[in-house]
Every structure is written in structure tokens, then in C-alpha cells.
Amino acid sequence: MIKKKICMLGAFATGKTSLVRKYVHSIFSEKYHTTVGVNIEKVQVHTENDDVDLIIWDLYGEDEFQKVRASYLRGASGCIYVVDGTRKATLATALNLKKMVDNTIGSTPFILAVNKSDLEDQWEIDMSLLEGLQQKGVFVVKTSAKTGEEVKKAFQELVKEMLCK
């Protein structure tokens, strides 16, 4: 059995924990409990060729007071950058975090999850912006932890990418 560590990264309250919980336990809550430090979850992912044990490090969201610690990233085989579609600033945070990751542990497979797709009418992020990123080779998924839309896909795509590398 192959085990891989991945990290959930993004600004606070973007839905990192919600996505993991939806994926691992199939539950969703409107209540917001900010993550302190790290939450670790484990889930088995089945792909065409392999079964992988994903050890998911759900990190606390970054804000102006708290930067993400580099040491938590160590040994990660992949990252999911979570953006809150309703808050434009979170995309910038995600991109900054990616730069930080590349600097500390080298370029790592990743995907960009733009979350809260169920609230797409309130989104601040332009579609064109995301398409631009996609053209640059960034894998973008529009997810909703609430409805579960594309959640599974997000994790499975990341695993695929990790195993290709």
C-alpha cells in the first residue's frame, strides 16, 4: 500500500476543512470552526492503477496574523489550494502560498479548488481569470463542500497528477 501526504492550503474560511470532511466523512456543516494548527485525516483513494492511502494535512487558513508554517509542508506529495469563490482576495493568498511551497519543498503536484460553487451567483472571481490559469497548466476545479460537487474529482485529480510524476 502506498501512502502519500498531501496538504490543504488556502486563506481562512475558504472551506478546506469542509472539503476534507465532505470527502472523507460525507458530512457538511454551515457552522464555522476555524482550524487550529493541523487536522489530519486519512482516506483511501482508488484510481485506475493504484490504491493510495492519502494522509491529508488540513492546515489552518492563512490570514494577516498567521502565516502557514513551512515545517508542516515537509514531505508532502501534493497540495490542494483552496480558494473561496466569493472572496477575490483568497485567490491571491492561494497563489502566494504556492510560491511559498515551491520555494520550501520544490515544485509539487497541486490543484486549485475554487470552492463554494453553490454560491456561484455571489462569486467575485471572474471565469476568465480561472481560464487563464488553466491555460498556464493549472488544474482548476470548481467545488462545493456543501453540495459535494466536484469534491471527489478534486482529490482524485491530484492523486493522478502525483502518481504521474
Partner: peptide, 28 residues
């Protein structure tokens, strides 16, 4: 580096939690 459990052993009748979660938290 990864905090991943390479091997894990438990004494006879102890009920243990998922070792990967424990080990992850331990690393964290």
C-alpha cells in the same frame, strides 16, 4: 519527512487508533 507510518505494532489487546492519524499528529 512525511510523518507517514512505515510500520506499526500493537501489544496484544490494545485497541489503537488509526496509526497514520496518530503519527501525523505526532509529527505535527
Amino acid at each position: 519527512n512525511t510523518g507517514i507510518v512505515l510500520e506499526h505494532v500493537v501489544a496484544g489487546d490494545i485497541i489503537s487508533q488509526d496509526p497514520d492519524l496518530v503519527s501525523g499528529m505526532l509529527s505535527a
